[in-house]
Write a protein that binds this DNA or RNA. Structure first.
Length: 238
DNA sequence: AAGCCTCACAACCGCAATAAT
DNA sequence: AATTATTGCGGTTGTGAGGCT
């Protein structure tokens, strides 16, 4: 038996959100908090599915979101994190306060990917493209746990004209252990998770969770009462 | 001015993971 | 333990704005 759709297709609105819908959703979450996304549309009086509400909130209406393009430091951090985490955008986003996985993913696909390709770096492996053709071969490919830092070196070169690390709010090395697996390096053996998915159980998760908690704490400190006010960029410009 | 192209970003879709029964 | 419901994630698409020819 197949799964039911996440929401009734009939009577569910799709497409861009109106200012009124946004207000209804924000009002509801401010009053009731985030829970039970499936019930949100009904309770908030929205003709949307819960999934759509959650996406709208997390990607656009959340009060702690930054706006605008990623700056050089953030971009560097994304590249470094991507080298370690791969396309796990939510994990990457958790280390960039005020940024969403969607935003980072978009920026990666529209900017960083092209930038790296232009520099001759494979955005997937973070290694020089010509190395993959077998012409370089300086670093050992063997499965030593020590990550070959080729990607990182190359990326720092990419932004060497910018502020390097001096003004960076955080560096990836300060956030992550070297134990964290690199893309392209073998993941921990799959016995832990049954080996069926591409997402192995990862012992470094606990640290990731700590960082996530840190981020969430900062969000809490920000306070919902600041929603749409003060320093926060208004979520809507209709 | 019109048409085309690129960019930026919002939103949807399908799947996997997890929780609940 | 198996099944079902819900949430979260990543890939992809759609669309409006702005620049260029």
């Amino acid at each position: 038996m197949g799964r039911k759709p996440c929401c009734d297709k009939l009577g569910v609105k799709k497409g861009p959100w109106s200012a009124e819908e946004d207000k209804m959703l924000v009002d509801f979450i401010l009053t009731n908090g985030q829970c039970c996304w499936r019930a949100v549309p009904k309770l908030a009086g929205l003709l949307r599915c819960g999934k759509s509400c959650r996406l709208r909130w997390t990607n656009y209406l959340r009060p702690d979101l930054k706006r605008g393009l990623l700056n050089d430091d953030e971009e560097q951090l994304v590249i470094d994190l991507h080298a370690r985490l791969g396309n796990r955008w939510s994990k990457i986003a958790a280390r960039l306060p005020g940024r969403t996985d969607n935003e980072i993913k978009n920026h990666w696909n529209t900017h960083i990917k092209k930038k790296l390709l232009k520099m001759g770096i494979d955005p997937l492996t973070h290694e020089p493209l010509n190395k993959q053709l077998g012409s370089l071969g300086s670093a050992s490919e063997s499965g030593d746990d020590q990550p070959p830092a080729t990607g990182k070196v190359a990326h720092h070169t990419a932004t060497e004209s910018s502020s390097q690390q001096s003004e960076a709010p955080t560096t990836v090395d300060s956030l992550l252990d070297d134990d964290f697996p690199l893309v392209g390096s073998p993941w921990p053996s799959s016995e832990a998770d049954g080996g069926s998915s591409g997402m192995p159980a990862w012992d470094g998760e606990s640290e990731a969770d700590w960082l996530l908690d840190y981020h969430q704490l900062s969000v809490l400190e920000f306070g919902l009462e600041n929603l749409f006010g003060g320093d926060v960029n208004p979520p809507l410009t209709y």
